[in-house]
Nucleic acid binder design. Structure first.
Lengths: 210, 210
DNA sequence: TAGATTGTTAATCGATTAACAATC
DNA sequence: TAGATTGTTAATCGATTAACAATC
């Protein structure tokens, strides 16, 4: 039995970029695109696009390129975006409320179905149409709501503890807005959204002539 | 003359992570740390930490490790964080206002000094203590304010046009919140903050058993 | 001094790119 | 058919890791 190496994570992370560009092209009425043209658009080499796609199947036609509608559907299916995902938001402060109100999730199939906080003064209130639950009830409430993904928007000092409890409740995917690098078991995916860290690596290039 | 290869970008992007962990350790009163201990904390190999740091200098002591205060100061200096950076926010909708009000930038040395929008109904209003300028006046106003970094929070459809104009005004670093991959000259750094893209690569691992 | 840990070189690993036969 | 472009293999490139002499 051959060892299943799997698809490199860096490849999986590029697929949503392809998806977005293709969706945009489709809206413009374009029906077919070559790896060369898509590469020009995204500033990656055509070889990389073809190699990336080849991990998953053969989606193109020689001499012609890729049918955009078909490739879109294939990528959506590969990424698991042909279904709706139920999301819980933990930490309903200023940032958590902005996340709940952000209109960009729902059209992409991410439905925020419940909200949690551990501050008794906030629990029981409503935010963006959702009742705020006590975080200590996460496992029960999130389980009942079929939550598969958690968004963490708590203060840095609380982030690790919250993530430990999410892991304990069986959550396997966390979008972390807390400015803290956190640890989780290898089978739990964490993506950090951290504008300050993003800025801090750009200033390196702004300082002096580099 | 040897070709100056420069520091790999992936190394520069790890430095803020080191910085954050070290700042946290310092607050806990810890004064010295080995690459082994820091690696355990961040889940990277000690060899990687030593190699990364070696691009910039020799900051440790054999047999002992790194003096945290000193390493922090060195990293801050390397990243250009021993100065304040002036930031402009472009696009003052719901998201732009949340960014202006986000309390995490100022303590890290990123000062939001001006705000822009191109909607005449919004220009002239105030948001978070800043008057909203017409984006057509960006070059003049941002120049006068000494802006070095722009944050883009406009709709996807407007993002490329806005970034073109920022580049034209001499901006070399853009933090892009618009859900769109954008192009810019090689000497202009762009970092994308895009929670939907982050979610879309996690769902791959959630679908089926991978 | 003995023990620990750095800084750096060399080996390994994995990702990207180039090249081209297959084929639309 | 001639031209274009895929899918895939092999070559290249670059990043990570292991190993260890130097040295605190």
């Amino acid at each position: 039995m051959a060892t299943q190496t799997g698809v490199p994570e860096v490849v999986v992370e590029r697929l949503p970029q392809y998806l977005r560009a293709l969706a945009h092209l489709k809206e413009s009425g374009i029906e077919v695109i070559s790896s060369q043209q898509l590469g020009d658009l995204l500033q990656v080499t055509p070889a990389q696009i073809r190699k990336d796609l080849s991990y998953f199947g053969r989606f193109g036609k020689q001499g012609r390129g890729y049918a955009i509608s078909n490739l879109l559907a294939q990528l959506r299916s590969i990424l698991g975006l042909d279904q709706t995902w139920n999301v819980a938001v933990v930490g309903i402060g200023r940032l958590g409320r902005a996340i709940i109100s952000y209109p960009g999730f729902e059209p992409e199939g991410f439905r925020i179905v419940c909200a949690f906080d551990s501050d008794k003064a906030v629990v029981g209130q409503w935010a963006g149409g959702l009742m705020i639950h006590d975080f200590s009830t996460f496992k029960k409430v999130a389980g009942a709501e079929g939550v598969q993904i958690a968004v963490v928007a708590v203060p840095a000092a609380a982030a690790q503890d919250v993530i430990d409890q999410l892991v304990d409740a069986g959550i396997k995917a966390v979008l972390n807005y807390a400015p803290k690098s956190t640890l989780a078991p290898a089978d739990v995916r964490i993506r950090n959204v951290d504008p300050v860290v993003a800025l801090q690596s750009m200033t390196y290039y702004l300082s002096a002539a580099r």
